[in-house]
Design a protein around this nucleic acid. Structure first.
Lengths: 121, 121
DNA sequence: AGTTTGTTTTGACATTCATCGAATCAGTGT
DNA sequence: ACACTGATTCGATGAATGTCAAAACAAACT
């Protein structure tokens, strides 16, 4: 998919920075779509409850939905809300087995977050 | 290259799952402080404008503040607001040189985000 | 002094978000 | 059929957020 790359400015050049009279080199911008997509993934993680949920899923590769509520200290309704946001963001998935629903993390999406920031380099 | 690797979860372990009568293994929870800290960093990136700003900074390791406004299509006031949020989150830093202010990314903080997701582990 | 330009803060507004109670849906039982 | 339990959705409320115009601040220049 479209990940970074880009190298917007001459690679080894531009060590001299404009100090006066000229400040702005155009410097390419990420597309609106890519920025919104990435921001959406970050938004999905921008809450302590959801961070805890993800943390639990990263430690035990499958967690019963019934376990989240007590662990994060929120009502079942609120917990379900957070689970839905994480699901909609494509970060986790859950399947029902009988009475209970088990959630797993989708590792590819987390890797996508890291790569999008070009942190791996 | 920056791609994949990572093996997100313990390879062959934990294949027996509770299916009936018992669903919840305690499964350790992240501390409130850690969760809030992490969520705060994600929140700082949970907006397209701020993602664009960070993207620009990752591509050119120093960008004049005057350049952001046009690139992200927001007013100077709004741009300044977003820069402040990124600054407060410790993700970027800016220093004034004469008339203009130049921003840089603080790579350590971004690495912290990646590590916190325990993708490398 | 005053002017000009770049940046931040203030104030206000509209939108989004987190939270919970209550109602509803989904499965498993009796 | 009914009851029970786990999970989701609905509705409402208070808080947080993004946005901009206007004012204030900072630095350089006349």
């Amino acid at each position: 998919m479209t990940t970074t790359a880009i190298s917007p400015i001459a690679p080894g050049s531009a060590r001299t920075l404009p100090v006066l009279n000229d400040c702005c080199t155009p410097s390419s911008t990420m597309s609106d779509d890519d920025a919104s997509l990435l921001a959406g993934m970050f938004k999905a993680l921008a809450d302590p409850a959801r961070v805890k949920i993800l943390s639990m899923l990263l430690n035990a590769d499958e967690v019963c939905a019934c376990d989240f509520s007590a662990s994060i200290g929120k009502t079942a309704a609120t917990t379900s809300h957070h689970l839905k946001l994480l699901r909609d963001a494509g970060l986790i998935t859950g399947d029902r087995r009988g009475t209970w629903i088990y959630y797993r993390v989708i590792p590819e999406r987390l890797v996508a977050i890291r790569d999008a920031l070009s942190l791996g380099r």
